[in-house]
């Protein structure tokens, strides 16, 4: 770990987290597409229908519904976590603020308007609707991605569900009917429950467990009673 430090190497070192997860995302999405096509064609063969090509599969309603249902739940998770941690406290958790910090905090604490510093983002200083909007931008973007993904899941899931109904010689549903259909809610809730489980258990387990060197953990020697970044 030394000597050669070209600009490329420096870029990789400074952006390891975003690059590693980006590469992992693309690889696993490709894997999902490959495995999904095999599974889809196995189901086609089971009922005597022909195989479909890889390009046809990745543009199918079935594939889009599978991808979108996972996207929506991840962004719902981040939205709920970002918003929940504004108001809700978990005593002893590194993910929580202390009880006296609950809420949106003062302009001074948040360095907005006249309390902005020289290197604050422009919209943090601007005041008015720009600061109000910028102060909610993270939650709003998470919410927007959740809503678009969930809507996409509802449309793609509807089409895919109707394909199976037609195959089974059943009448197709209207989109509005699909929204109250068990298939839609089964796909939706199976993702929501796992996100809520993971986040809830993480926030509580991190009271007592440590991962040395991770910013998601308290320092190994920090007391169980210390909440957030307080000492």
């Amino acid at each position: 770990m030394s000597a050669t430090r070209g600009p490329g190497r420096r870029f990789i070192r400074d952006n390891g987290l975003g690059l590693a997860f980006g590469a992992g995302f693309l690889a696993t999405l490709a894997g999902q597409a490959a495995a999904g096509q095999v599974q889809f064609n196995a189901e086609q063969h089971a009922v005597g229908l022909p195989s479909i090509s890889f390009s046809r599969y990745v543009t199918s309603a079935s594939f889009v519904a599978d991808v979108a249902e996972n996207w929506q739940s991840e962004y719902l998770q981040f939205f709920l976590y970002v918003m929940g941690t504004v108001w809700l406290i978990q005593r002893g958790s590194p993910e929580s603020k202390t009880a006296d910090q609950a809420g949106r905090e003062s302009d001074q604490d948040q360095r907005v308007g006249e309390h902005a510093t020289a290197d604050s983002p422009h919209w943090a200083r601007a005041g008015g609707w720009r600061t109000a909007l910028y102060s909610r931008s993270l939650g709003l973007v998470m919410l927007a991605i959740f809503l678009v993904s969930w809507s996409a899941q509802s449309v793609a899931g509807w089409v895919a569900y109707n394909e199976t109904r037609l195959r089974d010689l059943q009448a197709p549903l209207e989109w509005r009917e699909y929204l109250t259909c068990s298939d839609f809610w089964s796909r939706t809730l199976q993702n929501w429950q796992s996100e809520l489980l993971a986040v809830g258990s993480f926030a509580v387990l991190a009271v007592y467990l440590r991962e040395r060197g991770s910013p998601e953990s308290k320092p190994v020697g920090a007391p169980h009673s210390s909440t957030g970044t307080e000492e």
Partner: peptide, 30 residues
């Protein structure tokens, strides 16, 4: 140290591409 704009553009593009893909396929297949 300035954060990398290129990576922000990469992730934003990825997200937008994904969402547009959902909408296009959704519209195409319905």
């Amino acid at each position: 140290m300035r954060p990398a704009r290129a990576l922000t553009v990469f992730w934003t593009t990825l997200l937008l591409a994904g969402l547009v893909y959902f909408l296009v396929i959704g519209a195409l297949r319905r």
